[in-house]
Amino acid sequence: MNRNATILIADDDDDDRYLLQSVLDDCNLLNPTVFVGDGLELLEYIRTDNNDASVGLIILDLNMPRMDGREVLKVLKTEPKLRKIPVVVLTTSKSEKDVNQCYALGANCYISKPSSFDVFNDTILTLVKFWINLTHLPIKPEPFKAFY
């Protein structure tokens, strides 16, 4: 992973995007974050100007217009150039069917969005600590920048 590895977040809900950005700002995260509103925008971003080389983590909502998260997972995990990018599904769905389907499609993690702000905040902090500070990801040799 290069030192400027991007966290790519696909979510169509403005409130959820605002909350995510607020929590990430509070983390003093040094990695850039990019928000897209649906799966087509995600694929367009990741395939444009060699952006796939700089994306280190994808946070993916399931229910979005035009192309939903399930369809995005199918594409990402079948393309050799993209399949190693970790994908965390972050969605309101708690459906066992959705959980099983996402893991079958290659999701690395499935998290249901908490309804309270405090729990949402803690969940995102834990997600960031795990994926950014603790894991060794296979895409590039350089790690994410740490935050404290």
Rank of each mutant, 00 (worst) to 15 (best):
V23M: 05
V34K: 15
D15W: 02
K140P: 00
D12I: 02
E71C: 06
D25Q: 15
F130W: 10
F147H: 00
D52T: 02
K84F: 06
A146C: 08
I59N: 04
D16G: 05
D11M: 05
S115C: 07
Y110W: 04
D16N: 14
L24V: 13
P114Q: 07
A104L: 08
M64H: 08
L82C: 09
T135G: 11
D16L: 04
Q21F: 06
N50T: 00
F35R: 07
C102Q: 04
S112C: 15
N31Y: 11
L134M: 15
D11P: 05
T48E: 03
N31K: 06
E142G: 06
N31C: 09
D68V: 01
L125A: 00
Y110I: 03
D12S: 10
F144L: 10
P32N: 05
T126V: 08
D118N: 12
L76Q: 05
L42K: 08
I139A: 04
L82E: 08
N50G: 12
A107P: 03
D25P: 05
I139D: 04
G39K: 01
T78D: 13
S116D: 14
V55D: 09
V119I: 14
K113Q: 07
Y103C: 04
D38M: 06
N63E: 02
I58V: 15
T123N: 04
D38R: 08
A107M: 07
E142F: 11
V99R: 14
K84M: 12
I132G: 00
S22C: 10
R83V: 10
V119W: 03
H136W: 04
A5F: 09
D61Y: 06
T135S: 11
N121S: 08
E79K: 14
F144C: 12
L90H: 09
E71K: 15
I9A: 06
S22Q: 14
P65C: 09
M67C: 10
D118L: 11
V72N: 10
R17F: 02
G37K: 13
K145Q: 15
I7G: 00
L82D: 06
F144A: 11
S112M: 12
L73F: 07
F120N: 01
K145P: 01
L29F: 04
T92Q: 11
I139Y: 10
V128S: 00
L60R: 04
A107Q: 02
V72D: 07
